[in-house]
Design a protein around this nucleic acid. Structure first.
Lengths: 151, 151
DNA sequence: CTCAGTGCAAAGGATTTGCATGCCG
DNA sequence: CGGCATGCAAATCCTTTGCACTGAG
């Protein structure tokens, strides 16, 4: 299994490196570390999360590097209801999914919707873009509620 | 028309007053003013928006009163991608809708999805609650993209 | 040697809070 | 009168920025 994971990560890292090059940025050790953390985590991470998971990182550098990775399109920023931004790998590096946001603790978990749901959504989205002057780039379907831990 | 609006507002204000009482809060003049602003606006308002629309309001009181109204379940806080929280009337005081969030300016507009989309979503949501330990209270379907003004 | 990346500390900015005053009940 | 609501200003806290240092090419 370790072998498989390594292979996946290698591909991923290559892609991330390309995207960073695309915006004139290097793929440094710390940026690799951040991507690795995001790969391992099954939910978006806040900066405090990251700092706890890897004590060797400076807060300001984490902020800066996540901003760089976001600009490069390798990482996506997730906004919840609490005071912390969270970060996850860009969907095209992982898979399309949605979020379960706990209104009690602000935590986020991922979930995947059925193909039918996604098809319906896609249709609705094209409808909107033809009806209004708005150009959709992305959609987010979040369920707000109480997570198993807080219940 | 003025008459009609007044009637609608009266009902609304009564409901808001009840909800405030429910959490041991009064429906003061300033809270009325805030609700009135939210009724008139076709999209969620940020605190700066509110302060511009009504120069007589103190910033801290607006924050406080919107927090109170939110607690009472009369107002809902909307998080976008920029630094400002926005506020709108609770959906059960208006109607169920979704948001078009501009990734360029952070602005928000409302849109309504078709009944079929909502039906599909509802089914997906019950699926999730049975599959996971998560208890959904609400869902949000936001389209991220570029608004007509920024395009 | 050059220049981007990093860490530390200070600054920035939205939001919250303390406290004195005013007003509704 | 009593207590919550309000306004002003100061404090908070996430996030950003300035600056000197380090390391890769």
């Amino acid at each position: 299994m370790a072998g498989t994971v390594t292979t996946m990560s290698d591909e991923l890292h290559t892609t991330v490196a390309e995207r960073l090059r695309g915006v004139g940025q290097r793929y440094t050790r710390q940026r690799r570390a951040l991507v690795a953390l995001l790969v391992e985590s099954r939910h978006p991470l806040s900066i405090p999360d990251v700092l706890v998971l890897d004590r060797g990182l400076a807060q300001s550098s984490v902020y800066r590097n996540l901003a760089v990775l976001t600009q490069a399109g390798a990482v996506h920023r997730v906004v919840t209801t609490d005071d912390f931004s969270r970060y996850e790998l860009a969907e095209d590096l992982t898979h399309h999914h949605h979020h379960l946001i706990c209104s009690a603790c602000g935590g986020v978990e991922d979930f995947t919707a059925s193909a039918q749901v996604e098809r319906t959504l896609a249709r609705a989205i094209t409808d909107v873009s033809t009806t209004t002057g708005f150009t959709p780039e992305n959609h987010r379907l979040d369920l707000i509620g109480i997570c198993a831990t807080c219940a």
